[in-house]
Amino acid sequence: MANASKSFGRWFHQLGSPKWFYQKSAKWLPWLWIATAVLLAFGLYYSLFASPVDYQQGNSVRIMYIHVPAAALSMVGYLAMAICAVIGMVWKMKMSFMAMRAIAPVGALFTFICLFTGSLWGIPTWGTWWEWDARMTSELVLLFLYLGFIALHSSFNDRSKADNAAAILALVGAINIPIIYGSVKWWNTLHQAYSVTKKGAIAPEMQTPLFIMIAGFYLLFAIMVIIRLRLEIMNREAKSKWLQEVIS
């Protein structure tokens, strides 16, 4: 046990080193790509062809297999950003701020995908592509929060000020996450209640491909963040010796 916590501590410290991460992540990326490709290919085949048609919604139910994973990642991404903000502010780890910066545009993208597929799904099932319902509104606010974060971070000449200011904004905005999560439970509006992991709420033939897609989206999100993070490292550590050696 002591050994395990020691090795975790070491791993955590190594994660704080841009050099270590830059070199290691180059080795992780191919494996991550393979795993993502396999999961997404299998998941997409399963969900778009092999899973059953919904007796009420017909084929439009298949939008769910993109919509739900994107929605999950939009929230998890913000949460990860807020956690990075805390770690960066408390322990002053520069990698943490870099990760925070790397997550923001990816999170915004997934939020947009969630809103976009949601409105596509809304047309055949609800008869409207947009409704001011609690969950849609708070997801839209989440997109605005991401955009506000990106806008703030890119408005500084001084990078450390940008990091610290944006971290505070990320934390303040994190209040929205429990609101989105709870919105369908607290306000009984158009969007259906949470049912993904609830027993018996969703048929197993639909749940399995959904889980595969969620796992695939998580990996895709991780890959996109890692690529951005590597660029961020290259950008910030441009003057350091190890990076110049790696590039040349």
Binding site: V141, F144, L145, L147, G148, A151, L152, S155, F156, N157, A165, L169, G173, N176
Partner: peptide
């Protein structure tokens, strides 16, 4: 920040 005015609105309105 180097630009402001609109920036405050974009951050705080949500």
């Amino acid at each position: 920040a180097s630009r402001n005015g609109m920036l405050v609105a974009v951050m705080i309105l949500p």
